[in-house]
Design a protein around this nucleic acid. Structure first.
Lengths: 228, 228
DNA sequence: GCCGCGTGTGAAGGACTCGTGAACGTGACC
DNA sequence: GGTCACGTTCACGAGTCCTTCACACGCGGC
């Protein structure tokens, strides 16, 4: 059974969500402000976070950033229409999806299910990835290559994980942006290039001739396939 | 460039969507009722359909069902709040996503992009073309022929895929140009010749006597049909 | 066999793509 | 307030790919 943490300052909303989510078969945790949301997220390890953008005091964006700094917990943002929505779409927080208020509880349930499905599907290989001599410990955010341990930033790490989950498979820059930020974010595709450069510098024995993160001209990047 | 077909009976909505979508780099087709939407979907082959649920006459759900009967065209539903939304969620019409009215144009654009990314991400390796001894892995952009693996440029690859999808069928140069670039791109038809030459050099055991990519004098090219 | 026309081919130019270093903005930490 | 780490953006150079052109060759009709 999946656990969902719902954060909103209006008790009415929280209770409405709780009713529907429990009815839909989720375990529900709740919080009414940013700090307690952070605490609950760390202590109780929910599978997904439903987060109101307009929290008093500590803003929903701040909460999301704080969470994303050290975990990949999926986040669905709750926003009032228009102005708030634009903030989610345009600004830098990588929400996996968003629902606008006033929301239909059924819509919320549907979007939660959709996000969880997507996450499941993409994260099958447990918490460790082995590919072509690179070993990735997802929980610890640690990467070993050729015996040495490499320190990566969160972005570099997510990029590597996205690629290494399916060695050989080609990803466009747009897909990689998705993997890093989630749905709600637009930015310059070539930012990916910069991350690839940094990743290669740390990962590759000879960055000028990549062995792991290969570029596919005119398309994107891929992680090298196992080939004897 | 991707093409989106927008269907709504309110011209105001259609025009709003057109503005934003074109600005976001999509080619936009429009329709104001069910029958003409079906016609446009078949004739113009858009990459995605934005479909109002509350069409007069032929309902949006009917349109979606009719389309889904013979294609996998991705569909984003436009719905008024609440009651209509429930119909989308409840009746398992295979919409890929939905947006509630009144919608933010940016949200529509974001969801369209997300669906399109998801779609071409799902061309899993398993999506292969096998024809006459040539094996094409779409997601990996890899081609195996007679045991050896061949590296192709994006254009060469698209050309080969277009031909090999329907072995034996003859394509004119103009059709092949369409397959390589989207429609609406003019260039010298004989550019195809150059790509065919390069493709043959990489693919054929003896490029001067093509076994796979054959010339049909006065018409165009075709991929060799399976024989005995 | 000859001729017209379509096709194969190599080379050249230009367009596009990628790698890189550097600058800028932001938030975290001291 | 200052420093630091990180992510993003920009501009430039280098390299790859696409297109075009010119010419040679081959096909089909007469």
């Amino acid at each position: 059974m999946k656990t969902v943490l719902v954060v909103d300052d209006e008790p009415r909303i929280v209770e409405l969500a709780r009713d529907y989510l429990e009815h839909a078969g989720f375990a529900v945790l709740t919080a009414v402000d940013g700090p307690s949301a952070l605490k609950a997220a760390r202590a109780r390890k929910p599978d997904l976070l439903v987060l109101d953008l307009g929290l008093p005091g500590m803003d929903g964006l701040d909460v999301a950033r704080a969470i994303r700094r050290d975990s990949t917990l999926p986040i669905i943002m709750l926003t009032a229409r228009d102005d708030e929505l634009d903030r989610v779409l345009g600004l830098e927080i990588g929400a996996d999806d968003y629902v606008t208020k006033p929301f239909s509880p059924r819509e919320l349930v549907a979007r939660i299910r959709a996000v969880l499905r997507r996450i499941d599907r993409e994260s099958e290989p447990g918490d460790r990835i082995e590919a072509s001599g690179v070993s990735i410990d997802i929980a610890r955010m640690r990467v070993d290559v050729d015996g040495r341990t490499v320190e990566l930033t969160p972005t570099e790490f997510q990029l590597l994980v996205a690629l290494a989950r399916q060695p050989g498979r080609i990803f466009t820059r747009s897909q990689l942006l998705d993997a890093i930020h989630g749905l709600a974010f637009e930015s310059y595709e070539r930012a990916i290039d910069a991350h690839v450069k940094n990743l290669r510098r740390k990962l590759e024995p000879d960055p000028s001739r990549p062995r792991y993160v290969q570029t596919v001209y005119g398309v994107g990047y891929r992680f090298a396939e196992e080939r004897e």
